[in-house]
């Protein structure tokens, strides 16, 4: 367990006044507060450190204890016994002013020295006040095929099973908020929310842009020149396509409504764009070479 230098965390000297501590804390809290840095884990960690430092240094009794025994925290227990009767706070853990952000998540050092309780001895701000539970964040990895259709899935979050309906067309990086499935509220406050970030892996031959799908289909030379019919693979099946005579390489065709489902628009789909790639035959026979040579003579460049 490492010693935590609370003065360093707040960027102040050991001689800092209560006002200096408050000022330093406010300044850093404004910079790292989770409300101002949503989804920023580093800021959240930093904020917890700042909060913990303030919990200790803003309370004269605890600051004294920290200054005297901080580096030698193992002896803090003896100090604790000697001062037991003077303690201003008793009983269980009190409400942290930042309870919403897991403010009670103290370092091992803090837990060892102050027993994990709020060290400020503040009764008024916490007791009886309802706090909304913490918002929980989770990531769900799915494949592009998984999100082609609306489906249900059971997730285990903090030991609880949550059955979710995942709407078709959900996008990579999209966050869905599930109300009331976050952390428990404090003092009867409402539960927090569960924010699920979707990571969608695409292992198909289709590229997705918005709701439209893109793919390349090889076209043999003779069909490209003479026209005909081909069967192409779409995302959910097959489709027959007519090829116009003299179809050029890289020609694009649009299959309306054969793209990806549009999020939360039941039955609506994007389009599928197919690019034809004309395949030039290889390993020509003597006869083929001869015929191509004859064709070439008919159309001198």
């Amino acid at each position: 367990m490492a010693f935590v230098d609370y003065y360093k965390i707040l960027g102040i000297d050991k001689s800092a006044s209560t006002g200096d501590i408050k000022k330093a804390y406010r300044k850093l809290a404004r910079k790292y507060h989770p409300d101002l840095n949503p989804s920023d884990k580093d800021a959240e960690r930093k904020f917890k450190e700042i909060n913990e430092a303030n919990e200790v240094l803003s309370n004269p009794e605890n600051r004294k204890k920290y200054d005297e025994h901080g580096k030698d925290w193992k002896h803090a227990e003896e100090f604790e016994k000697a001062n037991q009767q003077q303690r201003q706070y008793q009983g269980g853990r009190q409400q942290n002013p930042f309870g919403d952000f897991g403010g009670g998540d103290y370092s091992d050092f803090f837990e060892s020295m102050f027993g994990g309780r709020s060290a400020r001895g503040r009764q008024s701000s916490g007791s009886g006040v309802k706090f909304r539970g913490q918002d929980l964040n989770a990531t769900l990895n799915l494949s592009l095929k998984d999100v082609y259709e609306t489906h249900k899935r059971t997730l285990t979050i903090n030991g609880k099973n949550i059955r979710l309906t995942i709407p078709a067309g959900v996008k990579n990086g999209q966050v869905i908020k599930i109300k009331g499935h976050g952390g428990e509220g404090i003092n009867g406050g409402p539960k927090g929310d569960l924010n699920i970030t979707f990571t969608i892996d695409n292992n198909t031959n289709f590229k997705l842009d918005g709701d439209n799908l893109y793919t390349t289909v090889e076209l043999d030379l003779y069909k490209a020149i003479l026209g005909g019919e081909i069967t192409v693979v779409t995302f959910d099946g097959k489709a027959k396509l007519k090829i116009a005579p003299e179809t050029q390489n890289s020609t694009k065709v649009k299959l309306k409504g054969k793209g990806f489902p549009i999020y939360k628009k039941d039955g609506e789909f994007g389009d599928l764009y197919i690019t034809y790639q004309v395949k030039i035959p290889k390993n020509l026979s003597e006869k083929e070479k001869q015929l191509f040579a004859e064709l070439a003579k008919l159309r001198p460049l």
Binding site: A29, R30, H33, D35, L36, F98, D100, R132, P190
Partner: peptide, 17 residues
């Protein structure tokens, strides 16, 4: 709107904004 309001209250009380 309670989430937004709680956020504003925290900014006001906790951060003195």
């Amino acid at each position: 709107k309670i989430n937004d309001i709680e956020k504003m209250i925290r900014m006001h009380i906790d951060l003195d904004i």
